[in-house]
Amino acid sequence: MTTRTYTIASSVGLHARPAALFTQAAAETGVEVTIGRPGEEPVDASSILGVMGLGAKNGEQVELTADGDGAEAALDKLGTLLETDLDA
């Protein structure tokens, strides 16, 4: 089990377009990844409803967690996305 913390870079937070891009990328990794605020119940990172419902704002910290083969690579990829302003 690997857990890493990232800071949301998108100026509008993890909403709308950034959320759609992020969940698509999460689905494409083929690895079960969850996203959530530290200490809170996480949601599936490929769920647009879950991720939008999270309402993570710009500058907020979130944790990505994954397990098994490809976990490291998936987190690298998704973490980079979180730390990019996807709304630009």
Binding site: V43, D44, S46, S47, I48, L49, G50, G53
Partner: peptide, 11 residues
């Protein structure tokens, strides 16, 4: 279609 396949909705 994306919503219908959503994992959190199903959960």
């Amino acid at each position: 279609a994306m919503i219908a396949r959503d994992k959190e909705l199903f959960k």
